[in-house]
């Protein structure tokens, strides 16, 4: 996951942008307090979205002025306060990052992956202490995915849904009281996961074809033309939006609506080759 799920900042209101930034920084702070300074580098907009979604469901909006170690000279900024919602997103972020790197090292022997993995090793130990079950879900999911990739699986649904399932299952560990909303959250994250995987695969298909890395779109090349890719990406996103419409968000609604209805839609268009129309 690398920043596919993000807002279209041009369409945000000023206060919504402040809210978005506060939550992004909040997640970063949460990661650093739980996993140390190195782990902060894994921060992504995707997990910021998950953090905001869970915060929104819990109705959290607390924020205060804080400084940032990475930008010591900058003025103090408004940053969301740490909470179980942020901690959940932080755990998920670390688990995804660590097991992804481990997988990259095992399969493709990328040296960078080994270094980065070594850097995250302390965080990984902590993850096992703090949230072992969530870690195991991610581990099993990434291993299942890596197995399918090794087999050169030609069923794009099987591969994409294996990744989707990681996020869908992880949602059940979110700190929510309402079981029904948890179920809806799981559906949102599942479809978003499918969408992210498909976006990533379609985006990288040319690079992977050259390097010979696994890519479901390359494996069954003839079957997947532009029209089919457009169907798959839009279908996954529409399902995520359908599920999102059932969610009862109390805070951060402006930003979350923007991400789902505008940001991801624009991203899909961009990935599919259309030019991203900037609003004036």
């Amino acid at each position: 996951m690398i920043g596919y799920v993000s807002a279209d900042k041009n369409e945000l209101k000023v206060r919504e942008l402040a809210d978005y930034n506060a939550c992004y920084c909040g997640l970063c702070k949460s990661i650093s307090s739980r996993y140390g300074q190195v782990a902060r580098l894994t921060l992504s907009y995707d997990c910021a979205f998950i953090a905001m979604l869970v915060c929104g469901l819990n109705g959290e909006r607390a924020a205060k002025k804080q400084g940032c170690v990475y930008k010591p000279l900058a003025k103090k900024r408004i940053i969301a306060e740490d909470s179980p919602s942020f901690q959940f997103a932080a755990d998920l972020e670390i688990a995804l990052a660590y097991y992804k790197l481990a997988d990259d090292w095992n399969d493709e022997k990328k040296l960078m992956a080994l270094f980065e993995k070594a850097g995250l090793y302390a965080s990984f130990k902590k993850l096992n202490m703090l949230s072992r079950q969530l870690g195991n879900i991610v581990k099993d999911g990434i291993y299942a995915l890596s197995k399918l990739e090794k087999e050169k699986c030609g069923e794009i649904d099987a591969v994409a849904n294996t990744f989707a399932k990681i996020l869908g299952d992880a949602a059940y560990f979110a700190p929510l009281n309402d079981e029904k909303q948890k179920k809806v959250l799981s559906h949102v994250l599942y479809s978003i996961g499918r969408w992210v995987y498909l976006c990533d695969a379609w985006d990288d298909r040319k690079k992977d074809e050259k390097s010979g890395s696994y890519n479901p779109f390359v494996i069954c090349g003839k079957q997947h033309d532009d029209a089919n890719a457009s169907f798959l990406l839009n279908n996954a996103l529409n399902k995520a939006i359908d599920a999102y419409d059932l969610i009862e968000i109390k805070t951060h609604k402006g930003v979350l609506d923007n991400i789902m209805y505008i940001g991801c839609v624009a991203k899909t268009k961009e990935v599919l080759g259309g030019k991203h129309e900037q609003s004036l």
């Binding site: 369409e11 457009s230 169907f231 798959l232 839009n234 279908n235 996103l237 529409n238 399902k239 939006i241 209805y261 505008i262 839609v265 899909t268 268009k269 129309e277 609003s279 004036l280």
Partner: peptide
Amino acid sequence: MIRNSGNPYTRATSSSGGSCSS
């Protein structure tokens, strides 16, 4: 149903008032 599910998502955004783009 399945054809429609693969169409790009469209929604009349109330925030962007004028519909006259460049």
